[in-house]
């Protein structure tokens, strides 16, 4: 796989940001077998693309450091974009950079213009870990015309249950979630169940959903609750769980499994 490390101006963020992109290209093993010329990259193919969102305290380099995403993506034959989201929960905050607009509106179009990937509404997928799982799932439910499939790993899907700063938790989310009491987010646009309900009540397209969580994960109950909410709303999903906690030991093999799900209907 080729890797393209990018630094570029974002209109949504009103500043520079970075991302890493993996793309299928002829590798050493391809050259060894004399198969380079037949490689889809050299035939001008535009690849299915997965936008993978990192978690809290992380950045655009985290996923490629903590997982074997490159070999999984190569096997799946897809491009992977790993953008930066700071600690934004991938929302447009009252104060701060507009990460929802960036990830859901600007980025898929910008990347499609710049690199050989498919665009919004085509084979364009999203996924994420922890805070990135909340981000990916919420954005797929809110922008199903852009993202047709979503994979979410161990997300804090119920924002009203996020631990408050005074309980010894890092005070990282106040800016992203409005700075007030997280209870007040119920029923708002940051409430993922609210976004899901709005989608379920209408006739817009629905993304295919893959939810994964470790059974020892602190968000396992949220994972179970979210499945119940989706069932009640009539939103179809695939759920996978295994022994494991909130961390990369669980997420790396879960990612491989999810990519199998992502591409099982590809020819």
């Amino acid at each position: 796989m080729a890797i393209v490390e990018c630094s570029f101006y974002s209109q949504a963020l009103l500043g520079m940001t970075k991302m890493n992109v993996f793309l299928p290209t002829p590798d050493a093993d391809c050259a060894q077998k004399g198969e380079t010329k037949e490689h889809p990259f050299l035939r001008g193919e535009r690849f299915p693309v997965l936008y993978l969102l990192h978690g809290m305290c992380e950045d655009y380099s985290t996923v490629l450091r903590k997982t074997r995403i490159e070999s999984y993506a190569k096997k799946a034959g897809i491009a992977v974009v790993m953008p930066d989201g700071e600690n934004s929960f991938y929302l447009n905050p009252k104060f701060g950079r507009k990460y929802e607009t960036f990830i859901a509106q600007e980025l898929p179009l910008f990347v499609k213009e710049t690199l050989p990937v498919q665009g919004p509404g085509e084979r364009c997928f999203i996924g994420g870990f922890s805070m990135g799982a909340y981000g990916a799932l919420r954005l797929a439910l809110k922008y199903p015309e852009t993202f047709s499939k979503v994979m979410a790993f161990s997300g804090p899907y119920d924002v009203t249950e996020l631990r408050a700063p005074e309980e010894g938790y890092f005070p990282m989310h106040p800016e992203a979630l409005g700075g007030g009491d997280v209870q007040e987010l119920a029923g708002t646009d940051a409430d993922l169940y609210c976004v899901a309900s709005a989608l379920a009540g209408g006739d817009r397209p629905r993304p295919e959903i893959f939810l994964s969580c470790g059974t020892e994960d602190e968000y396992y109950e949220t994972f179970v609750k979210t499945q119940a909410v989706f069932s009640d709303l009539g939103l179809a999903y695939t759920a996978q769980e295994a022994a494991g906690g909130h961390g990369w030991d669980y997420w790396d093999p879960a990612l491989l499994s999810a990519l199998g799900w992502l591409t099982e209907d590809e020819a």
Partner: peptide
């Protein structure tokens, strides 16, 4: 502006 470092395998 868009700046990139493009790393790929070169058979040559």
């Amino acid at each position: 502006m868009f700046f990139a470092t493009y790393k790929f395998f070169s058979a040559a």
